[in-house]
Write a protein that binds this DNA or RNA. Structure first.
Lengths: 347, 347
DNA sequence: ACCTATTATGTAAACGTATACATTTTTAAA
DNA sequence: TTTAAAAATGTATACGTTTACATAATAGGT
């Protein structure tokens, strides 16, 4: 015997398929006696609805896909927790899609958007520059999309989003270093094309400029968001003829690489060089030295991003209007976390 | 105008829907002239196939779902890379499902298995104890499942799986500590119910026994696989009246917590106490001190686990046999990585 | 030009569910 | 009881594809 369908149940219970369907989807509509009979038949036939057929018929899946750059990134732990919480209360299932850097091409992202395998998409991964054109094509705006954490290029900025103010946060971080007496401050950014770390660099440079400090050529380098990349960048910075006394890394993982490289070169952190991170991943406080960094309200971001998305999903009906309204981003507060990797500079 | 279907394309191109379908799925079957005409129509109508309908009709999705305990765990980076590689060459898409400890109840895992939203499932997360009954029910054995890394309870052991020999690996780790002159060796395991860390504990105890060494009550504690848990456990161990001179942690993250706790208590690592990890996550080598640990061939595991799964998916046809054949696990080699967190014990 | 073998296309049914609408049964009021 | 209103159930269709089968077009020989 093959896999049982709703018909089998109907026959077994002596009712129509419509009634079985109602027992499953709106039990209050069917009389108790019938309901019991049907439920009994469901058990006996070991039936469970064919999700594929159901989703097809309904035209929706109750699934939200979260696109994440890399599953092994500790930064996403808390965000995902927030996403799960909110998704559960809203009745959605979460599936995660790994973008893995540039390995997820325009085709993939496009197919994700255009095929209705999900009711909505949460982008925690940068889609610039490759996917930008894709997403901005009107034709691909079929599925609601909300962007979390990431900064998007201007032509995508009308997507709803929730994130901290990265420019301001980086500025605060830099200001803190300056307040500790540092004047020669280096910066390690992530990927060249990433607008996210570009924003952080903007904040860094703004703070330096406003404090009347120079940013020497060679004080900023690319760390590719990886440990090895940051090690390489750190080596570059300390080999500079006039090396910085403090280094601001665009995320914590790079800070780890940076610190490791410094120590390996016999440089003490923070006594010789201070290091500042970004994100406050869970390893930050057990590092040696514990990392001074910027914390994002990850749980809150996760929750708000799905509430925002669900709102978007539910106001599909009036699709006639082709709502051109630019969604203003929801900005959540960041926070400076002072630990021990930054210390006062002794002149 | 609503969302275009294959019918619209057919009308526009002046052919039947069957031909359009063929142009999409087996272009070589249709004459070039027609093909071009249809492709033109597809472009003009901005059509893309409704995945829901297609999957429903085909009865399969070309999707593999990977169940992972937590997305923020660096251990899964490399495994996922392997999975992605293999999945791409096999023509499958990967979606990830976060189990998040015990938050994914039997219902969820069951629904995952029984609904055909995927063609197969890769379990990197332990399903013991809660999901065990679920999975072992014959009625739920509808979707091919392959287990990676994890150890399963005996009644699930007939699922295909690929992993290292955890018992042996833990034994090798412990033997290494013993070879360095340690006789008082502690152990921090993960979760009480986890068979995975139970295996590692088994290996640890076996090594101790075979070396004629005692394991004192109080030398082993639960670290819950988290930093905080490990800190707590470490505190427990060092407060013992006769504290160990080496601590073996069931994963690297706990080793980080352990080391942090030791240092905070003024204990030097490895001079006073040696610490050994497990997994060789990417942070292991930049820790201070760099962590001596056991490496798993993560990339290989990832690849083999999907090849195994695909094999399973493809031999569905002969379902009549209800293949009771117990699949023997594929065991891959582990490797001891010697760094600096373990040193010779001075008597 | 004719017939055959091959190739290309069209026709129509099916997949499993949900639901609008029609019909039957029940309930409650008179 | 009778009747109207309300509630429960049944009938039948649609969702968008794919595909077995039937039919039409082409090509290749004579």
């Amino acid at each position: 015997m093959s896999i049982p369908s709703i018909k089998d149940v109907a026959k077994l219970a002596g009712v129509s398929t419509a009634t079985v369907s109602r027992v499953i989807n709106s039990p209050e509509q069917v009389r108790e006696a019938t309901r019991l009979k049907v439920q009994e038949a469901i058990r006996n036939s070991d039936y469970s609805p064919n999700t594929l057929a159901r989703d097809f018929r309904r035209g929706s899946t109750n699934i939200i896909i979260v696109v994440v750059p890399k599953v092994g990134d500790p930064f996403f732990s808390a965000i995902m927790r927030g996403i799960r919480n909110a998704a559960r209360t809203e009745g959605y299932s979460i599936l995660i899609r790994e973008a893995a850097g540039s390995e997820m091409g325009p085709d993939e992202i496009s197919s994700l958007v255009v095929s209705r395998q999900a009711d909505g998409i949460i982008l925690l991964a940068s889609v610039s520059p490759f996917g930008t054109e894709i997403l901005s094509e009107r034709s691909n705006r079929r599925l609601p999309i909300v962007i979390g954490c990431e900064t998007m290029s201007p032509d995508l900025s009308d997507f709803p989003s929730v994130h901290i103010n990265n420019v301001l946060a980086a500025r605060d971080a830099t200001d803190y270093l300056i307040s500790q007496g540092h004047t020669k401050i280096g910066f390690i950014y992530g990927e060249k094309q990433s607008l996210l770390t570009a924003d952080r660099e903007l904040g860094y440079r703004a703070a330096m400029r406003d404090a009347g400090l120079d940013v020497e050529e060679g004080w900023v380098a690319e760390g590719r968001m990886t440990i090895q990349g940051a090690e390489h960048a750190a080596r570059h910075l300390i080999n500079h003829q006039n090396p910085p006394t403090a280094i601001f890394c665009a995320n914590d993982e790079m800070a780890m690489g940076c610190i490791h490289e410094l120590k390996s070169s016999g440089i003490r952190v923070p006594e010789d060089i201070s290091v500042m991170g970004f994100d406050d991943i869970r390893y930050a406080e057990v590092m040696d030295p514990p990392l001074t960094t910027i914390a994002q309200p990850a749980l809150e971001i996760g929750e708000r991003v799905v509430y925002r998305l669900v709102k978007e999903i539910n106001r599909k009906p009036e699709a006639g209007k082709e709502s051109k309204a630019i969604a203003k981003p929801e900005v959540v507060p960041h926070k400076l976390i002072v630990r021990s990797s930054v210390t006062k500079h002794r002149h």
